[in-house]
Design a binder for these strands. Sequence first.
DNA 1: AAATAAATAGACCGATCGTCTTTGAAAGTC
DNA 2: GACTTTCAAAGACGATCGGTCTATTTATTT
Lengths: 211, 211
Amino acid sequence: MTNMDIKTRRRGRPPKEAAGYNETRESLLRAGVEILTEKGFSSAGIDEILRRVGVPKGSFYHFFGSKEAFGTELVGRYAAYFASKLDRFLLDNTLPPLQRLRAFTNDARSGMARHEYRRGCLVGNLGQEMGTLPESFREQLKAVFHDWQARVARCLEEAKTSGEIGEMSDCQQLAATFWIGWEGAILRAKLDGAPDALDLFADFFLAGLRK
Amino acid sequence: MTNMDIKTRRRGRPPKEAAGYNETRESLLRAGVEILTEKGFSSAGIDEILRRVGVPKGSFYHFFGSKEAFGTELVGRYAAYFASKLDRFLLDNTLPPLQRLRAFTNDARSGMARHEYRRGCLVGNLGQEMGTLPESFREQLKAVFHDWQARVARCLEEAKTSGEIGEMSDCQQLAATFWIGWEGAILRAKLDGAPDALDLFADFFLAGLRK
DNA sequence: AAATAAATAGACCGATCGTCTTTGAAAGTC
DNA sequence: GACTTTCAAAGACGATCGGTCTATTTATTT
């Protein structure tokens, strides 16, 4: 729209303005999350994703430079989605801070149940796979955890202010501990095909907070 | 040796009495643990294991019926190894119960450091992979956790008796929680390439116990 | 030596990997 | 409408690796 200086407008079809929304691309990403949360990165085949979406291979490598690039974008999307979901719960002022965290874990449990405990956390999955993954993922995954952790920590700070948890609590450490254990719980719930681990850890964590 | 009734002892080399110890077989299993704790089951190739040991493929399928059978045996070995290691720490009467658990986590941390945080827990790895693995692994892995959990629970019972933890504690649940979080900590330590997660969770868990 | 089993050796084929080249459709200018 | 350029779709391609199977060599006995 802001074509102030059209200088030498060339003939032929003009390039797309940046990466506009594209239906095929989006469905590839959607299917990617579904499959990678179930099987991880290495075991997930491009072909499988393509088959599910009904798109030929050429399209994939038109939209994404490589499987690695695809994965990077998936993680980014997934991280952002959960960051906003976290905020939706953890910044909900109608509830006391610790109940917000509980609301988040409950929501996550519903999510796992909805997919019959077959899908885990994309970030956790890829973290586990670092032994095989391109090293470039490591920093990205660490950053995601750092971000999620910060959001939880903020909520815990509020809990401290409101007196729900002790004055001396180190909210950063506690938030880190939450994610360490929560990812473990997801992993276990997947293995068990049951939500018990999620509740067990959430209960223990919240009880431990109140001391 | 107990060939009481040699009935019709045939000519030629006699069949081996059961599965006797075999050097090649053992080194395949050793290498298998090393590689699978780093890369998991699906991403670990038979060829890679064979190359490391310097053994041709024929030997592998002489000793093991399939990759799946190989994995099953690996898990069995690994589980037994850790069961005995757990006992060594958790039944050590020279220490109060909770300090025994701490001794175990410290030992595990050393182990991870020794391998530069590249190797995780075989059982955790395969659990994460259930999305791709032969379904037969699921029960085996669950059973291993159940076994490890029972050993921790026993230790916690002692802690209850000695008054280290509250009279009302549900040791089974607590032990389950320990393994849920501990596996999460291993996963995270692997991603971080650092032991922080291990300490963080161990501290939180033990503190939570004492209430 | 003859017989039998253990262990080694690698050929084999199907599947899947990720990339690349080619073709067709769409969207503009002249 | 002819031409040009980009977007997107198709699928060919070579390489790797999966697990299995047949054949050969080595060991141990009558």
